[in-house]
């Protein structure tokens, strides 16, 4: 599904190398988790994959179902099935949540040569998905993320994911800022989308999320590289001992 090879990325504005040869393959139907110390480059990886400005790929490649990602515009990547749940979801005053979702869904459909969804079907779809995430109608009416609590913003990200039904979902610290119940809701939302045709890359600092969303593979990222890959037990090890041992092993 998602194949990242020897990805090197530096900042466009300054001479700072952030990703230093990332290799990672997420197969369809699998959930991969990435853990790693603050500043190790996890968010950068997710931004580069989704096409944010400000980064320069100096080496390596990234493909989605064999198609080159890095040359495509962000909207083309989205239409191809890539989705990033932001670590810091963006507030957009003046743009209603519903308008935003419908515009996004229809733009993706259009890009794929599909018909637009009818207003009633759309309403039905959103209501149903919102209900399972306990997002109320009032929140749907508000401008995108404006005045949402931290946890509401994260749930809103998952709502977008549920509506857009991407093939490859990247979740950047979607668990941070969530209370225990919200964590369960969000995890249920993610698990509901788990499917043979869909891949997940879950960035997190905590084992707690991985109790709910059971990963198939766990990677440790440090200093711009994946330094260790293992099964779910790797996350438990990090939870217990921190990164010191793993980092020492690598050095």
């Amino acid at each position: 599904m998602l194949e990242i090879k020897n990805l090197h990325v530096k900042l466009e504005e300054e001479d700072k190398q952030i990703l230093k040869g990332v290799n990672l393959t997420v197969e369809a139907g699998k959930v991969h988790a990435i853990m790693g110390p603050n500043g190790s480059g996890k968010s950068t990886l997710s931004y580069v994959l989704s096409g944010r400005d400000g980064y320069e790929v100096t080496e390596g490649s990234a493909t989605l179902e064999g198609e080159d990602l890095l040359e495509a515009e962000p909207e083309e990547r989205a239409a191809a099935g890539l989705f990033l749940a932001f670590q810091y979801p963006v507030e957009i005053p003046g743009v209603g949540n519903m308008t935003f979702l419908r515009t996004a869904l229809n733009a993706q459909r259009k890009a794929r040569g599909e018909d637009e969804i009818s207003a009633t079907d759309f309403l039905k779809l959103v209501r149903e998905k919102a209900k399972t995430l306990k997002i109320d109608a009032e929140m749907l009416k508000r401008p995108v993320n404006v005045g949402f609590s931290g946890g509401e913003k994260k749930r809103n990200e998952i709502l977008q994911m549920a509506v857009l039904e991407p093939k490859m979902c990247i979740l950047d610290e979607t668990d941070s800022g969530l209370d225990v119940d919200a964590m369960k809701l969000v995890s249920d939302g993610v698990n509901a989308l788990r499917d043979e045709g869909r891949g997940f890359l879950v960035i997190t600092h905590y084992q707690r999320l991985l109790d709910h969303i059971k990963p198939d593979v766990v990677h440790i990222m440090a200093n711009g590289r994946i330094i260790k890959t293992g099964g779910p037990e790797l996350a438990l090890e990090v939870e217990k001992n921190g990164y010191a041992d793993i980092l020492a092993e690598e050095a």
Partner: peptide, 19 residues
């Protein structure tokens, strides 16, 4: 905000108009 919209599949022009 523009990137957020684009990352959801909304083309630049349309996203600019929305904003």
């Amino acid at each position: 905000a523009l990137f957020y919209l684009r990352s959801r599949g909304v083309p630049t022009d349309q996203a600019t108009n929305l904003l």
